[in-house]
Design a protein around this nucleic acid. Structure first.
Lengths: 210, 210
DNA sequence: CCATTAAACAGACATTTGTCTGGTAGGTCA
DNA sequence: TGACCTACCAGACAAATGTCTGTTTAATGG
């Protein structure tokens, strides 16, 4: 094998190209070169050409900034040219604690805007009719900001006994209540705070009418 | 005035630059030149510089493909690298017939995915509580596909007597009814079809919980 | 040991591309 | 009319950029 771990730098080059495209335009060969501290243009070129070879990039030969992302690669997790727009993973219907790991294999991505870049967001599909009164219907998609600190009255995703549900949070003296927004359902009253695990706060509701 | 209507070509150049950025990278000055059939590079350059002057574009002097979209402008109407994603104009609260022209100056843009590229989409902010039962609350944003042919039972945006409203459409024999989804409101029954102008069909509902 | 390979280095060349200077045509306005 | 403006044309130069040839180093495998 070569002096440097094989493919190690290669992926970093790929990531760099993606970043640069997200900022407006693909980098030049020399920009890649200098970013990685290569002292020869050819070094950067070899990596770029190798990435084209394995299909991770495409190129328009002879043209400036000719390296592009292959079709379909664009909308997976980031968005070129739209810094205020983010693709958040849709984790599907929540089931037993598998939530945190489910990010590895999302069912899809949802475009979200107007959220700070550092916000840890994900999306869920809502089950049940317990939040009808808040305009959240079964099948709706909720965008959730992963945070433990929530305020009274906010709609949250909470994990109770391994089951994740969407409810409105009520902080009473000494205990927590999870209120449905439907007269047919009863509030969940929790004695100790350990029973409930606040996964995050619902920041957006979305419904597609096919 | 000049030989050609002022600013006419200018906007087309701006649109072209946006298109090209959406396809992966900004165009070169000469690419703009040839696309518009200019026989001199300077013609394209003048338009581009003028657009920079008026803030419609930014540039990185001296660098290849240096023209970019200004920050915040990135998400206005298109999305680089994400063909299945579109930005649709938010036309704000609908008022008297101004809807069709309002596209010129949208209040913002909303990211939408999963809609065919040829669909003519726009977004509206919902007023009133007449659709509570359908999970559409005041302040919600609805994404509308502009189409006149609608089916029975679909939620539509209809223009009645100059006022635009969101209602569920009921086609009865000989007449049209616009049903609210709220017991406190009454259906609108229309005798002739001329009174009502179907602006389009609601394909998505969206709500931000700040 | 030697051939092979991947990675990086060195230097150069040709094309692409941004930029500049100057000129022409048609229109407005004082 | 003449000053002035916008749009466009013509030609050229210099910087940026893609591409090529050859060399060196280190690790692998027969």
């Amino acid at each position: 094998m070569p002096a440097t771990p094989p493919g190690q730098t290669r992926r970093q080059v790929h990531a760099y190209v993606r970043e640069r495209i997200a900022e407006g335009a693909p980098p030049t060969v020399r920009e890649v070169q200098h970013h990685f501290g290569f002292k020869a243009v050819q070094s950067a070129r070899q990596h770029l050409e190798a990435l084209v070879q394995e299909g991770a990039l495409t190129k328009e030969p002879g043209r400036a900034r000719g390296y592009r992302l292959p079709p379909g690669e664009g909308s997976a997790g980031f968005l070129p040219g739209a810094p205020d727009l983010r693709m958040v993973p849709l984790l599907g219907r929540v089931q037993a604690g598998a939530l945190t790991e489910a990010i590895e294999d999302p069912q899809g991505y949802v475009p979200v805007e107007g959220q700070p870049a550092d916000a840890n967001l994900f999306a869920l599909t809502v089950r049940g009719e317990s939040m009808l009164g808040a305009g959240i219907l079964p099948g709706d998609t909720v965008v959730v900001r992963r945070q433990h600190a929530v305020r009274n009255g906010e709609i949250v995703v909470a994990q109770v006994a391994g089951e994740a549900t969407v409810k409105r949070l009520r902080l009473k003296r000494g205990h927590v209540e999870l209120h449905p927004e439907n007269a047919l359902f009863k509030p969940i009253v929790l004695d100790g705070r350990d029973e409930v695990n606040i996964l995050g706060r619902v920041v957006e509701v979305r419904r597609c009418l096919t």
